[in-house]
Nucleic acid binder design. Structure first.
Length: 461
RNA sequence: GGCUGGGUGGCAGAGUGGUGAUGCAGCGGCCUGCAAAGCCGUGUACAUGGGUUCGAUUCCCGUCCCAGCCUCCA
């Protein structure tokens, strides 16, 4: 049985979906005005892992991950670029899809965009107005009145008075309470706008997630995820909006993934210490990034540096090495002990590091058996590949993985094969000086030769 | 200032009230023409001071240190 840490209760709880066999989950996606950085990659990969595991457990999952395609930063960036807003967002949505695809992230069931749901947003704001939770400020913006909502602060463990005492709450004349947040932003001249009962404007950020999650998943659903920094205020505000508008409990389980760090510091745009996915992909294979992300527990901080990515590369190489030269067979019962351990680890709040350690134990067993009994090794290799697949790993052809050009500096495969042949001939006439020269030359070019029982194989190292 | 998390062996990173993580690196051995890969073996690790306990890295309290949220942020 799956247990997961629920931010709402600050403890691990057994996961019981509202409808047996079906899970409805919503994850806050990105605001598309720039390329994905590793922080975004972590959200994508972590919740993809959750999605895959739920699917593997036999659940029918409706997975919604939104795209914020209208907000201040987008408007500003478009203006800076002299680019139309939809051109800008279209460009970065495509880039995000490319990055997500590269990282092996499955497409969610629905990927709604805020601009396509303005109708739902207006409808929800109207309900909040009707129920007295919203008001129009002096500047024409529509605000949510935080003090009207009893449970405000529950998710993030704060009390209103503590928040008001915080030194960083900026007073705003048009708000009744500095903690109130905007539902509808009145348009300034030249800004994109939609008509509304409160004048032309655009949605505030928080309301879109309430409106879209409700639209696709109903008023009350199972699982809501996102980065830790969304816990407050974004998710707190979502709860306030949705529960005030629908009079129903909003979400049963809240999950938040930890940050990616650089030099023990949060990776963020404002600090300028971020690495985009495509920057990292210039030096590392996508699967190495995915392994790097899953090598830490999703709630822990994840420190980014080259050594960490190198370590991911080594670890992944070991797993693929175990798969090498074997035709993965249907595991049957042979893999049961490892499958059980794997599932136990995943059931414990998605403990991917522990689950990976099971994969290494399994890889050792495969390596041990392949020498003595390849018949038995094949089903275990099948198990290894299948369990890896639940994490979105190990699905490539092993030789392809070792030989693919992950790090630039292409050496022609045909040339390598020719040199291997030359070396083989040298070895046959016991000219080891020549044989070693060929091997050393290739090594200098990043190609490692390995003599096995079935001949010489090569890989990029 | 308020509120959250966390400090594990050379590094990364799980976990546990009393033998095992796992990966990388190291050391010894097997295999190999030599390597590589693989296999076998190999580590007085749990910030610090108290307390609870037959026994604590694991529970409780204090201290120090780190990160995060309280403003846009994944």
């Amino acid at each position: 049985m799956l247990n997961l840490y629920n931010t709402l209760t600050r403890q691990k709880e057994p996961f019981r979906p509202m409808e047996p066999g079906k899970v409805r989950m919503y994850v806050c996606g990105m605001t598309v005005y720039d390329y994905c950085h590793l922080g975004h990659a972590r959200v994508l990969v972590v919740f993809d892992m959750v999605y895959r595991y739920l699917l593997a457990q036999g659940y029918e999952v409706t997975y919604v991950r939104n795209i914020t395609d209208i907000d201040d930063k987008i408007i500003r960036r478009a203006a800076e670029n002299g680019e139309a807003i939809d051109a800008l967002t279209g460009r970065f949505i495509q880039a995000m899809h490319e990055d997500a695809d590269a990282l092996g992230v499955l497409r969610p069931t629905h990927e709604p965009r805020a601009t396509q749901h303005v109708h739902d947003i207006l409808h929800m704001i109207q309900r909040l107005m009707d129920r007295g939770y919203a008001y129009v400020g002096e500047n024409g913006d529509v605000y949510y009145s935080v003090s009207r909502f009893d449970g405000y602060g529950r998710l993030s463990g704060r009390r209103l008075e503590d928040l008001r005492a915080g030194e960083r709450v900026a007073p705003d004349e048009s708000k009744r309470d500095p903690l109130d947040f905007v539902l509808w932003k009145a348009a300034k001249p030249g800004e994109p706008a939609w008509d509304s009962p409160w004048g032309p404007g655009r949605p505030g950020w928080h309301i879109e997630c309430s409106a879209m999650s409700t639209h696709y998943l109903g008023n009350h659903f199972d699982l809501h995820g996102g980065g830790q920094d969304l816990q407050f205020p974004h998710h707190e505000n979502e709860i306030a909006q949705s529960e005030a508008a629908t009079c129903e409990h909003f979400v049963n389980y809240w999950m938040h993934n930890g940050f990616v760090r650089v030099d023990e510091e949060k990776m963020s745009k404002s600090l300028g210490n971020f690495f985009t996915v495509r920057q990292v992909l210039e030096h590392y294979r996508p699967e190495e990034i995915r392994y790097f992300i899953l090598g830490s527990h999703y709630r822990s901080p994840l420190n980014y540096n080259d050594q960490a990515l190198e370590a991911a590369r080594s670890a992944l190489s070991r797993l693929y090495t175990a798969l090498r030269g074997l035709e993965p067979a249907h595991p049957g019962d042979a893999g049961a002990p490892w499958r059980d351990r794997f599932n136990a680890a995943m059931d414990d709040d998605f403990n991917t590091p522990e689950a990976l350690s099971v994969l290494f134990d399994l890889a050792r067993e495969v390596n041990r058996l392949r020498q003595t009994d390849p018949q038995e090794a094949a089903p275990l290799a099948g198990c290894l590949k299948a369990l890896g697949g639940i994490l979105g790993l190990l699905q490539a052809d092993p030789e392809g993985f070792f030989q693919q050009d992950g790090t630039g500096d292409a050496v022609d495969a045909a040339e390598i094969e020719a040199l291997i042949q030359q070396r083989l001939e040298a070895r046959q006439r016991r000219d080891f000086t020549e044989a070693d020269r060929i091997r050393d030359d290739l090594k200098a070019r990043g190609i490692l030769l390995e003599d096995g029982p079935e001949g010489t194989t090569w890989r990029r190292g």
